[in-house]
């Protein structure tokens, strides 16, 4: 009886999971393959203009100042906007995870920390644009009156454009990373700390010798997410710095790699070159992820 019931069902699961594969092949795999093909052509709005082999790649890597400018900006933002914040998120998670019986409001803090992550990049950018305002923004108000400093022209000065973008990225993702690390911390068995307590280790040593090694897989995951996200920053500089026309503001200081990809593809309509940028970025992400893995392994020893 059970056997026949089971047999009758053998096709059912395949039918139930087939929508994913249909959609993935049409809208995922096929265009990905197609983009390799396009990247070997000079391809404009009026169609393919001839096979050029690796020329798009070669030109990008050897003679395209914008590509390197964008890569430099993206790397800077990756470090100061996406990676260094893990050094804030881990201690914050440890604080949220404290076992003091009188600690109240963990759920409240979690919600508050998570809120920036679910907010649209456009809303965030529009609000921060007002906070960054030269004459009437809160940032300069605090900066001038509390710290007695000169006003900062956040969105015009090439140096501070990047800082402004990094502030927004940190604001959006520190809480998200904290919540991820908190979940990781809660999975660490408490018995590990008891032994250290007996040895009389102080809190900092305990976290360095127990928490961090136990957290390594989560660190790998969270840092990988930061790398993938950080290499794709587009919305913030696009909205904050005046769209495609401004190409990332003064000195192209907010021109990120993803911005340059979008600009090349959708503003300049150079589809071949745009696809080549996409593949170069993909390789860079892969290399960074492998590097992350290697560093993670090294720390494990």
């Amino acid at each position: 009886m059970i056997r026949t019931l089971f047999k009758k069902n053998t096709l059912t699961p395949y039918i139930f999971i087939s929508p994913f594969f249909v959609l993935f092949f049409i809208f995922g795999l096929y265009p990905i393959g197609y983009s390799i093909y396009i990247s070997f052509f000079k391809w404009t709005i009026s169609g393919p203009q001839g096979f050029v082999g690796l020329t798009n790649y070669k030109n990008l890597l050897t003679r395209d100042p914008f590509f390197f400018k964008a890569l430099g900006n993206t790397t800077w933002l990756l470090i100061f906007g996406s990676l260094l914040q893990h050094l804030i998120a881990i201690p914050l998670a440890i604080m949220l995870n404290n076992e003091n019986k009188n600690f109240r409001g963990r759920g409240f803090f979690k919600t508050a920390f998570f809120l920036p992550y679910i907010t649209s990049t456009v809303s965030v950018t529009l609000i921060f644009a007002q906070l960054f305002d030269l004459n009437y923004g809160w940032l300069n108000y605090v900066w001038v009156n509390l710290f007695q400093q000169e006003r900062v022209n956040w969105l015009s000065n090439p140096d501070t454009i990047k800082t402004a973008l990094a502030i927004m990225l940190n604001w959006r993702f520190v809480g998200w990373n904290t919540i991820i690390y908190l979940a990781g911390l809660q999975a660490i068995p408490g018995t590990l700390y008891e032994a250290a307590d007996i040895d009389g280790a102080n809190a900092f040593r305990k976290h360095l010798s127990i928490t961090v090694p136990q957290l390594l897989p989560i660190i790998f995951f969270a840092v990988t997410m930061s790398i993938i996200g950080g290499m794709q920053v587009f919305d913030e500089p696009y909205v904050l710095l005046g769209g495609y026309e401004q190409m990332g503001g003064n000195g192209n200081s907010g021109l990120t790699s993803a911005f340059y990809l979008m600009f090349t593809g959708f503003k300049a309509s150079r589809f071949g070159k745009g696809s080549a940028i996409a593949w170069l970025l993909f390789f860079i992400i892969m290399i960074l992820t492998l590097l992350n893995k290697a560093i993670n392994r090294m720390m494990d020893k």
Binding site: F27, G28, P31, I32, S35, M231, F266
Partner: peptide, 24 residues
């Protein structure tokens, strides 16, 4: 294997297919 494949597609960055996707 199929589930693993599905999960692994999450790591593909969204911009990789964006130009051909637009043309499609």
């Amino acid at each position: 294997g199929l589930l693993l494949f599905i999960i692994s597609t999450m790591a593909i960055p969204a911009f990789l297919n964006i130009i051909p996707f637009f043309k499609m």
